[in-house]
Design a protein around this nucleic acid. Structure first.
Lengths: 333, 333
DNA sequence: TTGAAAGCGCTAACAC
DNA sequence: GTGTTAGCGCTTTCAA
């Protein structure tokens, strides 16, 4: 089936290609009857405009680049869903790119983003590489960063104040006498993990204490679970904070297999929330980070940037909510 | 920063744009010193070829369309990872599209796929809509379907024989006297679920029995968990088969909260495998469907189709493996 | 209201 | 080995 072009339609409808172009772009000057003739021809031929040619003519692709960390999409998935739903509304296409461990690939991603001339980029990447940003802003293409508070002329961000979330929780625990708090390292989310530490530190310091509960997983251990199984034999905690759901599960399992009952002997809180948090037993208390909104808002901001609409904030903080479940002791009312 | 074009490079290097084109496409006729001059100019100007213009000139975008069901990416995520890894090797870009419940949107997706003139399409979608396929094959664009056994001239598929997996398992259970087997409906995976039923039916029939264990979740129940909590009060099963991990968890939770111990009073098997299966307690026995490979192989097949290499099979079946964990009784050795 | 023609940035004959 | 030029399919002035 030969691909039908605007010329074919023009010939079929007995008009010039300019007129066809006007019809498909709803330029309102076309007379009703010729428009109908063209529309009929389009339908008859099954014509679909070539977005590539349009992109070339307009220097505009209505495509945005999306960069996310590879590996698990459990949490990222929600972000993507939010982003896609909004992108659909505005008819934007999505070019998906994932970042892998190998740092060298970052430049490949930039290369491909620039080459494909996307109109904008959304980056959701924990190990935020500022060199990547710098290079990208060079091409002055609008960028929205998810989960990082940064902004610049062509750069906005949508994020959650994880440090504050942790700060508040830790402060509450310290004030109620549960001062031995650990934060489990998350190698795949170094940045977020650092924010957690920052929040904890602040809470400790404000209470005249100093924080030393960062639990580093030695490289010799294959999983957090393996390490925690050993670690919890020697070290007692009142509360363990994990970033990802799977790390919270690892903590629960390691605890219970060491004879520690959750939440009585050890409380556990997860930062991000996924459906799995309410599926395991005990259910894991967590902050419910609005992951879907993170994606949706990011895309919405990007569309504003793309139409040079200045009515938007460059740094958008979304609210989290703490959801108490069974892995923590009920708060005193 | 004005976007630099091939003309700018040509001028800078004092050659014609044809020569620049040859250099960036590594056409080997260029003399060494002029090539170096061009390369220097490219670097100096920070030139990156415009893939859109290339796409127009070549009628080839080196982009493939990927269609996946939205919602959870826990399992789909692995498929995507596999696909992306291979796509990266062959320098293909990915246009991501998700299908939602609303059936009307399918035509939008096709529309956007055709318009963007991708070179090929990979579809991973349970509720496989054959009308979608028909329309897509009309445009004779190479297509690879994941999780569905179909093929045609420009159509290949990569799949797993879920019916057989279930058949074998069910047969084994029947032969060891555990005949009351239930299959939990999965509304989000109707097709896969039907395959499970087919497999079970076959096993029952071959054993002179008939299968009536399909557990439909009434629409009035919000979750499988809610329904199973009630259902398991009235109905006893030897084995429950779930497609997704979350449904298996629902079954475990519902069972244990009804005083049924897993696996002693009730065994549970999950079809697809995710990391969560080994994180919950009891760990869930499952088939490990090679989800990553599903994506990787699909992409590899697609690249073969794209270069008109005929040395590939149109229907590729991948093997599954059964992994026994704690939600089933140990097989007698 | 419609058509002609230039141009978007690149590739690939075809000349030289 | 390198340059010239005609497309690729579309949008958008500018004329008519």
């Amino acid at each position: 089936m030969k691909r039908v072009t605007i010329y074919d339609v023009a010939k079929e409808a007995n008009v010039s290609l300019a007129t066809v172009s006007r019809v498909i772009n709803s330029v309102d000057v076309v007379r009703k009857d010729t428009r109908e003739r063209v529309e009929a021809a389009i339908k008859r031929l099954g014509y679909k405009p070539n977005a590539i040619a349009q992109g070339l003519a307009l220097s505009k692709t209505t495509t945005i680049g999306l960069v996310v960390p590879e590996a698990s999409f459990t949490f990222t998935g929600n972000v993507i869903n939010g982003l896609l739903d909004v992108a659909r509304i505005y008819k934007y296409n999505i070019m998906l790119n994932t970042t892998t461990e190998g740092i060298s690939e970052i430049s490949d991603i930039i290369e491909s983003i620039i080459k494909s001339r996307v109109d904008g980029v959304v980056i959701y990447n924990d190990k935020m590489d500022y060199s990547m940003l710098k290079e990208l802003t060079n091409y002055d293409i609008p960028i929205v960063i998810i989960n990082n508070k940064v902004s610049d002329e062509k750069l906005s961000s949508v994020y959650i104040d994880i440090a504050r979330a942790v700060y508040e929780k830790v402060d509450e625990y310290i004030k109620t006498g549960r001062k031995k708090i650990g934060i489990i390292q998350d190698r795949k989310n170094n940045f977020a993990c650092q924010l957690m530490i920052d929040g904890a530190k602040k809470a400790y310091e404000e209470n005249g204490l100093s924080f030393d509960g960062f639990i580093q997983i030695p490289g010799t251990y294959r999983t957090s679970y393996d390490f925690l199984s050993d670690h919890l034999k020697e070290e007692r905690y009142d509360l363990l904070l994990a970033y990802r759901d799977s790390q919270a599960f690892a903590a629960v399992n390691a605890a219970e297999e060491n004879g520690l009952s959750v939440p009585n002997d050890l409380e556990i809180i997860c930062i991000i929330d996924t459906k799995y948090n309410s599926m395991v037993r005990p259910r894991i208390s967590s902050f419910s980070i609005p992951s879907y909104d993170l994606g949706a808002v990011a895309m919405r901001v990007l569309t504003k940037m793309l139409k040079n609409d200045d009515a938007y904030e460059h740094e958008i903080e979304l609210n989290y909510l703490y959801t108490e479940r069974e892995s923590t002791k009920p708060a005193k009312k």
